[in-house]
Structures are given as C-alpha cells and as structure tokens.
Computed example of a mutant assay.
Amino acid sequence: MQCRSIALALLLGMLFVSPASRAAYPDKPVKLLVGYAPGGSTDIVARLLAKVLTQKWRQSVVVENKTGASGMIAAEQTVHAAPDGYTLLLGYTPEVSLNKLVFKRMHYDPITDLSALALVASAPLVLVSGPKLHARNLKELLTHKGSQRQISYGSPGVGGQQHMAGEMLGRLTGLPLMHVPYRGTSLAVNDLLGGQIDLFFATTPPLLQHIRAGKLWPILVAGPKREKLLPNVPTAVELGLPRLQLTNWFGVFGPKDLPAELAGRISDDVMAVFKDPGFVKSLEDQGLTPTPLQGAAFKDFIGAEMKKYQEIVAETGISVQ
C-alpha cells in the first residue's frame, strides 16, 4: 500500500511539472540575428559570442544576417518571434535605441518590444580615409574645407552613430560632407577601398587589417582615449574636437514577453562567458572592449545613451520618413 502511495505521488508530481522545467534550455539550435552584412563589428561580436555559447549550451547558436533598414529588419523579426529564447538579436546601437529618435515610422518600439538581456562589448568610432582622398591626418583633411567637391562618407544605415558622427564632423569643421548609406559596414569598407567614397567612421575590427596594410589611413578616434591597437592615432579631444565622442555598443536582446526566468538564464549565461579568458582576448584582439552589463544596469545604460543622442539629433536635424 505504501509503495502504491509513493508511486501515485511521483506520478502526480510529474503531471504538475511545468513545461519549462521539463526541457532544459536550449534543447535545439538558437538563432542569433544580426541586422547587418557579414564582416562588420556587429557580425564579428555575434560570431565570437555564438562560438562560446554553442560550447556552453551544447547546442548550435547560428548567426543569421538579416540586412537592411538600419538594422530594423532583424530587430523586427526578433520582436515577432516566439518568446521562447530560440530567436535572439545581437543588437547594435541604432536598431535598439537610436532609430526611435530619427525614424518617423517604425513597426516596433525598441524600448517596449524588446527584452534587453546583456551588454557584451563596446568600441569608439575611428575615422578613416581611403585612397581616393589625399588625407592621412586631420590637418590634411581640413585642406579640403574650401573644396567645391563634396567629400563623401559612408555609414551602415541612416540615423545610426556613423551617420551622426559624419554630420557632427561636418558641423564642427565646416567640411563639405555628403552622407552615403549602406546595408552594412563591410559593404561601405569595400567601396572606401575602391575609391567610391572618401571617408568612413567605424569601430576598429573591420578596419584594422586594411590600416595595417596601408590601404586606409586612420585620422582620429572618436573616444576619450587612444585605442590600444591604434596607439599612434590621436583622439578627437586631442585634436580640439571634444564633442566628437561616439561609442558603438553591442548587446543581446529577445522578444518582450520572454519569461523572466528564461531571460535571467540567458543573461546569466552571457555574463558567464566573460570568465573565459579566450573570449575576452578574442574581443580585445579585434579592438573591442568587453563591457558586461545585465538587468537594470543595462537598461539604465540604454536610457543614458538615448538621452545623449537626443541632443545630437536635435542639433543635426537628422530625420527619416
């Protein structure tokens, strides 16, 4: 009789176990969406993170590039995905904060429709010139100030930090700059190398090999201190442009209705990868700064960034219909 009671209790316990606890997460591959073409900083961070999470979760974390609309195609797909943790976004600043400030029409609200899970990395923008423009430093660049020809600069989308950086540079220096948007950083870098555009702001990773090869020339770092991998490149502050300080950042996001327990699990697991010295070194070797933040601290960080860029948008008048 006692055995029957124990068996019945065990059976009832199994019946009332929640579905979430029956299957450990993840029990199938996880998609990590990127809103830009392969080869840019967002894609690089995503692939480095996917590699270590694949090992940690013992399930494939597959990076999928959904390019276009300043990163919003990938973000929108994440917003509309099932809130089960199997579709995540490796978000870059525009699609998860800035676009809300410059686009008149959006199909999602990045603040209310996405779950901010974990900040992963950050890096200041670096201004580089290509072979078409004879400018290897700011002094040489400023000789083009009175030119009748507009100087073209690329960005991976309208309204993002690179676009804002170019507008700020033009306002601060009086250079005749013309914005040329692309669907990703790597596409803009290819055109910069080919002479189709003159200048480009980007983080160090997609630029480094071309700088070292002497094909691109770094003019300044738009951050508070010099980059470790570019020690001879002065900061905007050193060059008398203290307002030109713009840092890209990259984090993990999920759909808004992601259960709190699952969101915490994913966030904690992302934070845990920073204990892996190999992962940290892989970021630093690319010129990226490991920037672990989660929960309320990450949300506060996003809020502070949006406040900063509201002022830039108001000054530059950047707006997209």
Results as ranks from 00 to 15, higher is better:
residue 273 V to F: 10
residue 274 F to I: 08
residue 274 F to P: 02
residue 274 F to M: 03
residue 274 F to R: 06
residue 274 F to C: 04
residue 275 K to S: 14
residue 275 K to A: 15
residue 276 D to C: 09
residue 276 D to A: 07
residue 277 P to G: 01
residue 277 P to W: 00
residue 278 G to S: 13
residue 279 F to R: 09
residue 279 F to G: 01
residue 280 V to M: 05
residue 281 K to H: 12
residue 281 K to R: 12
residue 282 S to L: 05
residue 282 S to P: 06
residue 283 L to Y: 02
residue 283 L to K: 09
residue 284 E to R: 15
residue 285 D to R: 14
residue 285 D to I: 05
residue 285 D to P: 11
residue 285 D to S: 14
residue 286 Q to E: 15
residue 286 Q to V: 01
residue 286 Q to C: 06
residue 287 G to D: 04
residue 287 G to T: 10
residue 287 G to L: 06
residue 288 L to A: 06
residue 288 L to Q: 04
residue 288 L to S: 05
residue 288 L to M: 02
residue 289 T to D: 09
residue 289 T to C: 00
residue 290 P to N: 00
residue 290 P to S: 08
residue 291 T to M: 09
residue 292 P to Y: 05
residue 293 L to I: 04
residue 293 L to P: 04
residue 293 L to W: 03
residue 294 Q to E: 10
residue 294 Q to F: 13
residue 295 G to P: 01
residue 296 A to G: 00
residue 297 A to N: 13
residue 297 A to T: 14
residue 298 F to V: 00
residue 298 F to H: 12
residue 298 F to A: 11
residue 299 K to P: 10
residue 301 F to V: 04
residue 301 F to Y: 11
residue 301 F to C: 01
residue 303 G to N: 06
residue 304 A to I: 13
residue 305 E to P: 05
residue 305 E to R: 13
residue 305 E to W: 01
residue 306 M to P: 01
residue 306 M to L: 15
residue 306 M to G: 06
residue 307 K to R: 15
residue 307 K to T: 11
residue 308 K to V: 15
residue 308 K to H: 11
residue 308 K to Q: 13
residue 309 Y to R: 00
residue 309 Y to C: 01
residue 309 Y to M: 03
residue 310 Q to L: 05
residue 310 Q to S: 10
residue 311 E to I: 08
residue 311 E to N: 10
residue 311 E to R: 15
residue 312 I to S: 03
residue 312 I to C: 02
residue 313 V to K: 06
residue 314 A to W: 07
residue 314 A to I: 08
residue 315 E to S: 15
residue 316 T to W: 00
residue 316 T to V: 07
residue 317 G to S: 03
residue 317 G to Y: 00
